[in-house]
Computed example of a mutant assay.
Amino acid sequence: MSAYTYIEMSSVPRPLLQMAVRRLEGSQSWISIPGCPFAGIEEEGQIQFPYPRNRELRKQLLAWLDHWNISYGVEQ
């Protein structure tokens, strides 16, 4: 079973969103935010990232979220 991290677009600092790279791939809108170790899928005011099973990758993602004080939720 896969888990995902969700963040609200409104919680991402504006300067980061202005530097983000977006691309459409089929029907999905991908977003890469500077410094974030993963690209996410943007939809309906949220960004969905994979929640890594690997402890080191998970620590990198959570450290980035904590650094920018971004609230997040995790769902399976």
Rank of each mutant, 00 (worst) to 15 (best):
Q28Y: 13
I31F: 06
A3R: 10
S71E: 14
S27F: 13
L61W: 01
P37C: 07
H67P: 06
R22F: 05
H67T: 07
E25P: 01
R22S: 04
D66P: 04
A39I: 06
N69C: 12
Q76H: 07
Q48E: 11
R23Q: 04
L57P: 05
S71Y: 11
C36Q: 00
P50V: 09
P37S: 06
S29N: 14
Y6D: 08
I70W: 07
S32F: 02
L57N: 11
F38L: 06
R53T: 06
R14N: 15
R58D: 00
I41S: 05
R53P: 00
F38M: 03
S29F: 09
L17I: 10
R53N: 04
Q28V: 13
R53W: 02
R55M: 08
E25N: 11
Y51Q: 05
Q46M: 08
S11H: 10
R14D: 15
P52G: 03
P50R: 05
E25A: 08
W30H: 10
R58N: 00
A39L: 06
Q46W: 07
E75R: 13
Y72F: 04
L17N: 10
V12R: 11
S2T: 13
E44P: 08
S71A: 14
I7F: 04
P34C: 03
Q46L: 06
S10W: 04
F38K: 02
W68I: 01
I31C: 04
P34E: 02
F38V: 04
S32K: 12
G35Y: 00
S32M: 13
P13E: 12
V21L: 14
I47G: 05
K59P: 04
I47M: 02
I70T: 02
S29L: 15
S27P: 13
E43K: 15
E43C: 10
D66W: 05
L57R: 12
P13M: 03
M9L: 14
A3G: 01
G73L: 05
Y51E: 08
A3N: 02
P34V: 02
M1D: 07
R22C: 12
N54E: 13
T5L: 10
W30F: 14
N69R: 15
P15G: 04
A3E: 09
L57G: 06
W68T: 00
Q18M: 15
Q60S: 10
S71R: 15
I70E: 04
Y4A: 13
M19F: 13
V12S: 12
E42G: 11
Y72I: 00
S29V: 12
E44M: 10
S27I: 14
R58G: 01
C36T: 00
E75W: 12
S27Y: 14
A3F: 02
F38C: 01
A63I: 07
A39P: 01
Y72E: 00
Y4N: 15
E56Y: 09
L61M: 03
S10C: 08
F49Q: 00
L16M: 09
D66A: 07
N69E: 15
Q18K: 14
R53G: 09
N54P: 07
I41V: 09
E42A: 15
P50K: 11
P34W: 02
R58Q: 03
Q48P: 01
Q28S: 14
V21E: 12
M19L: 15
Q60L: 11
Q60N: 11
V12A: 12
R23A: 03
L16I: 05
Q76P: 08
H67W: 08
P34F: 03
Q46K: 14
G73S: 12
S32Q: 11
L62N: 02
S2Q: 14
R58S: 00
I47C: 04
